[in-house]
């Protein structure tokens, strides 16, 4: 595919290098037996993985990140899926406006939303950081929940549900035996996407952090500021490994490029 389009091919190689090479260097740096981020790495050891696993701030931050990502994803689905149903099946007036409202957090820069929540809820009303983080992450994930599950609904035939109702099924029964199976891949995709988005989030988690409520990415940024050793490379490599696992799960279930690229082939 490359032999007859030399210009496009060389631009493509450059593009892939910019996307991938820095990640490979992080992995290489993580296994060094030296004490600095020197290239080439000095020898092989797992000492920085041990150091990272024993570093209390990282352990606490990982726990906070996981709690926040699971709770906010669960909440976003719990309030987002019913809203999606109402948008696509409710025949409500102003459907476009309501859907736009649910997608609106995508338009405003996340740093601005973070600043807003910090100023208005933490500074003014003295609410604890974790509930505000949870509220912010949930609002941030709502657009994904509504759009991804909405795509699953829009692609299904509403007459199936009408048929079930016509045959005497109650609304509850119709939902659980007809609508929910249609929604399931969408809910699963939205869940994976939501978890990843919350776990990796920087802007909201940065502005809404407290000393004892700090997510892993923020704790990493904080650490880089103070010391410049390969421990961050080790943590990064572990995150990379976790992300690869999620990518494989996505590929085996709904299709990796469909969930994360929005590409239907």
């Amino acid at each position: 595919m490359t032999s007859r389009k030399p210009i496009a091919a060389s631009l493509a190689v450059l593009g892939y290098m910019i996307m991938i090479v820095p990640i490979l260097f992080v992995v290489a740096a993580a296994f060094t037996s030296g004490s600095s981020l020197r290239f080439p790495p000095e020898g092989f050891s797992l000492q920085w993985f041990e150091a990272a696993a024993g570093h209390t701030p990282f352990r606490a931050a990982l726990l906070t990140s996981l709690q926040l990502a699971l709770l906010s994803t669960g909440l976003a689905l719990a309030v987002g899926v019913p809203a999606t149903l109402a948008i696509h099946r409710g025949k409500l007036p102003g459907k476009g406006f309501i859907e736009g409202l649910f997608l609106s957090p995508l338009i405003i820069p996340e740093l601005v939303v973070g600043l807003a929540l910090f100023q208005q809820l933490i500074v003014t009303y003295r609410i604890d950081n974790f509930p505000v983080l949870l509220l912010g992450h949930t609002a941030l994930l709502l657009p994904y929940a509504v759009r991804v599950t909405g795509a699953a609904l829009a692609g299904s035939d509403e007459s199936l549900e009408e048929a079930a109702r016509g045959l005497g099924a109650s609304p509850m029964r119709t939902f659980f035996s007809v609508t929910l199976p249609v929604l399931r891949p969408g809910i699963f995709s939205a869940g994976l996407l939501g978890f990843i988005t919350s776990f990796n989030n920087v802007p909201l988690s940065l502005l809404l952090q407290a000393r004892d409520t700090r997510t892993l990415p923020i704790s990493m940024l904080d650490y880089v500021q103070q010391s410049y050793d390969p421990m961050i490379a080790a943590v990064s490599t572990l995150i990379l490994a976790g992300t690869v696992v999620i990518a494989i799960i996505a590929e085996r279930t709904v299709g990796f490029t469909r969930i994360f690229g929005g590409i239907n082939r």
Binding site: I23, F25, V26, N200, V202, M220, Y228, T243, F256
Partner: peptide, 20 residues
Amino acid sequence: ALAIFPLLLSNVVRTFGWLV
């Protein structure tokens, strides 16, 4: 897939690579 994968990976991890 290799072009989409970085979208899943933490920005902090990806950016840290340039420090190295």
